[in-house]
């Protein structure tokens, strides 16, 4: 079986209030070198498919159909054996 791992992040020009709050906490905890935090999410999709090229194109369709909102999010993915 193949597994797709999709990493979804907010577009660079979209403010990430959650990341800002975490950044503030990191600095308060004594990590002044932390300069910016952006929070995204990781989505794993197990695929009944052995051809990794087919899996890749189907996963891309899934990202565009549902997994990612292209107005505010970017994504990348990898396909691994599982």
């Amino acid at each position: 079986m193949l597994k797709g791992i999709v990493t979804v992040s907010l577009k660079q020009d979209v403010l990430d209030p959650q990341g800002q709050a975490v950044l503030h906490s990191l600095q308060t905890l004594g990590f002044p070198e932390a300069q910016n935090v952006r929070i995204g999410k990781s989505i794993e999709v197990w695929l009944e498919e052995s051809d990794s090229q087919k899996a890749e194109s189907r996963l891309k369709e899934m990202c565009e159909a549902l997994l990612v909102n292209s107005v505010i999010e970017d994504y990348s993915f990898e396909i691994v054996e599982d």
Partner: peptide, 17 residues
């Protein structure tokens, strides 16, 4: 309505969280 594309743009987390 924004998610289905009937309206443009998106609604995300309040700036004050």
């Amino acid at each position: 309505l924004t998610e289905c594309g009937l309206l443009p743009g998106a609604l995300h987390r309040n700036s004050g969280l």
